[in-house]
């Protein structure tokens, strides 16, 4: 079992910051079950499938792992993976703080312009754990609704917190309401 200390050592050896998103990609590649943990099986299976048998090869793999984030489908897989990986065992939802940290990490990569407003909103108005549905739908929202909200459909099936977020954006003047229609 590799725990937090071990992972910290691994990061040092790889010359990677533990907060680097690439560590999430690695966890995803190794099908890790829990954040800050690799089981022996996960780790061995992971390095085998990545064809890593030396530190040198491991280091060389890092940029390749990072580049996978550019692929939209892979990014989505990783985003979806992150929820189960990061939530406490036995819980249905993700702690708010962890969620916000992950969002900031992931959406910095994804370049969603509203990520700061979202994190602020979710703390101010919700301040509770994040449900899986909200987690999954937020990426959908970030992918499909443009930052001016021009194609946002209030009648759609967005989770109600996303509807509230839109209202919040309009309320705080971050976005203007659609004038047509």
């Amino acid at each position: 079992m590799i725990m937090a200390d071990g992972i910290s050592n691994l990061c040092n050896d790889l010359q990677v910051n533990p907060d680097d998103i690439v560590m999430l990609v690695l966890a995803w590649e190794m099908r890790a079950e829990t954040m800050c943990e690799f089981s022996k099986q996960e780790f061995i299976g992971g390095v085998q499938s990545l064809e890593i048998d030396s530190m040198e090869k491991f280091k060389k793999k890092i940029p390749i792992l990072r580049s996978q984030l550019k692929d939209e489908d892979t990014f989505r897989d990783i985003y979806n993976f992150a929820f189960d990986w990061a939530k406490e065992k036995g819980q249905k939802s993700l702690a708010l703080e962890t969620g916000i940290a992950l969002w900031q990490l992931l959406f910095a990569e994804f370049k969603w312009p509203l990520v700061d407003q979202w994190c602020q909103f979710i703390q101010e108005r919700h301040n509770k754990a994040i449900s899986r549905d909200l987690w999954l739908q937020l990426l959908e929202f970030a992918r499909t609704v443009d930052s001016t909200l021009s194609n946002y459909d209030a009648e759609g099936a967005w989770p109600w917190l996303l509807d509230e977020f839109v209202e919040y954006l309009i309320e705080t003047g971050a976005c203007t309401e659609k004038s047509d229609e």
């Binding site: 249905k92 449900s131 899986r132 549905d133 909200l134 099936a157 109600w160 509807d163």
Partner: peptide, 10 residues
């Protein structure tokens, strides 16, 4: 209704 739907999803 939305809230209840989401709750049922959870």
């Amino acid at each position: 209704i939305k809230k209840r739907i989401e709750d049922l999803i959870t």
